[in-house]
């Protein structure tokens, strides 16, 4: 399947939230998330990949989103020698009763695997592939991410 204009329109409708939620999970501000989402879909239209299926396109979009976010955060990090702040942005605090907002309060290494696991229903293996991490690392991060949320949620609710 090549990315024609009609395929692009269809794919955007289906996967715009997939891309936006991943990039927002990384950058946690709407302005950067909108820019990064645009970058991802510009790459999609410009790509010359022969996709096997919609799932293949979705996996490609998630992989590209993650790489663009990593590059974006790296370009921000040079401004200070201090590590990037994990302080919760105001627009996340607004949704303080929200489960999504609760996940967003976690450190990046936990919230991205948790998001892919629960929103995309990705397997550990798929998350490992998308994030270029060993499966063991993904499992540990999922476990610890859940533990960190455990104070706010009943553990059995996560399964």
């Amino acid at each position: 399947m090549k990315i024609t204009e009609s395929v692009f329109l269809d794919v955007f409708e289906k996967f715009k939230n997939t891309v936006y939620s991943v990039v927002f999970n990384y950058v946690r501000n709407a302005e950067d998330a909108a820019d990064l989402q645009q970058d991802v879909f510009v790459k999609l239209l410009g790509s010359d990949v022969e996709y096997e299926s919609e799932e293949h396109i979705k996996a490609w979009l998630i992989r590209v989103s993650i790489n663009l976010c990593k590059n974006h955060l790296r370009s921000q990090s040079h401004l200070s020698d201090a590590p990037l702040s994990e302080e919760i942005p105001a627009e996340v605090k607004e949704e303080s009763n929200d489960l999504f907002a609760l996940v967003l309060t976690l450190p990046e290494k936990y919230r991205i695997p948790l998001h892919l696991f629960y929103y995309e229903e990705y397997s550990v293996r798929q998350i490992a592939t998308a994030m270029e991490l060993p499966e063991a690392t993904v499992k540990i991060r999922l476990k610890r991410g859940r533990e960190k949320l455990g104070k706010s949620l009943r553990k059995e609710d996560w399964f």
């Binding site: 204009e5 329109l9 715009k16 939620s21 879909f41 239209l45």
Partner: peptide
């Protein structure tokens, strides 16, 4: 996402 992400597919295609 639906609240924050209001761009239509047509707009995105034009920008891309």
């Amino acid at each position: 996402c639906n609240e924050k992400n209001t761009m239509t597919a047509e707009e995105m295609l034009r920008i891309a």
